[in-house]
Structure formats: structure tokens, C-alpha cells
């Protein structure tokens, strides 16, 4: 993740805390989804940004995940996301985020 964006994110967490906070990603491929998910759970994997070594352990999801989709109003999901589900490599991307979440997030 961009180092400046990590700084912005860190500021929000410092102000709001991590309680009741989730992260939802819209990353277009498996590798970037994994990097973002790791950044908000176990810390910046590139060890370059403000979130390096910061273990936020936030529950992280990708908008394309089935369990996310199931909660959302189908008509709204259809309008905003459905086409990208066909375009992107949904199984790979969602698996990457799920793996990171299961290892690194404090889930309810």
C-alpha cells in the first residue's frame, strides 16, 4: 500500500480505535488484495510504511466475497459490483483475503 495512504489510515485508527471497525477492499487482483489485507492485519509486508510492524488485526473482507454479498441488498450489489465479479478473478482474490483474515484478524 502507498506509504502516504498508510499514514492516512493510521491516523484514522489512532482517532477511532479498532473496536467495531472492519476493512472492505475492492482490489483488482490477488496480489494487491493480499498486500492490503496483510497491511491492516499483521502490518505492512514491505516494511516500508507507517504500518510496518503495526498489528491492527482488523477483520478484512473483499467486496466480492460470498459472505459479504449475502448481507448486501441484492439490487444494490447487482448495480454496483456484479459486472466486476465477472471481470475479476473472483475466486483467487477472495481466497487471498480470506486466508489473511483467518490468520491475522481478531474476528468476533
Amino acid at each position: 500500500m502507498d506509504l502516504e495512504d498508510q499514514g492516512l489510515l493510521k491516523r484514522v485508527i489512532d482517532e477511532q480505535g479498532t473496536e467495531n471497525v472492519i476493512v472492505v477492499l475492492g482490489s483488482p487482483d490477488e496480489e494487491s488484495a493480499r498486500v492490503y489485507a496483510e497491511t491492516v492485519t499483521t502490518g505492512d509486508p514491505s516494511w516500508a510504511g507507517p504500518l510496518a510492524g503495526v498489528s491492527l488485526r482488523l477483520p478484512v473482507y473483499h467486496i466480492l466475497e460470498d459472505e459479504v454479498r449475502q448481507e448486501i441488498d441484492p439490487a444494490v450489489y447487482e448495480e454496483h459490483v456484479a459486472m466486476m465479479e465477472m471481470v475479476l478473478d473472483t475466486p483467487e482474490i477472495t481466497k487471498a483475503v480470506r486466508d489473511v483474515r483467518e490468520k491475522g484478524s481478531d474476528l468476533d
Binding site: S27, P28, D29, E31, S32, M83, M84, M86, V87
Partner: peptide, 19 residues
């Protein structure tokens, strides 16, 4: 990690044609 931008755009157009 930004993927293949033109390929993704082409898939969007094709998906729209499919929808």
C-alpha cells in the same frame, strides 16, 4: 499488483455485452 488494465477493460465490455 495493478493487473492487466486493458485486459480488464476488455472483459468489462465483453461482460456488458453478455449481460
Amino acid at each position: 499488483g495493478s493487473g492487466n488494465v486493458p485486459d480488464r477493460n476488455y472483459k468489462m465490455i465483453a461482460s456488458l455485452a453478455a449481460l
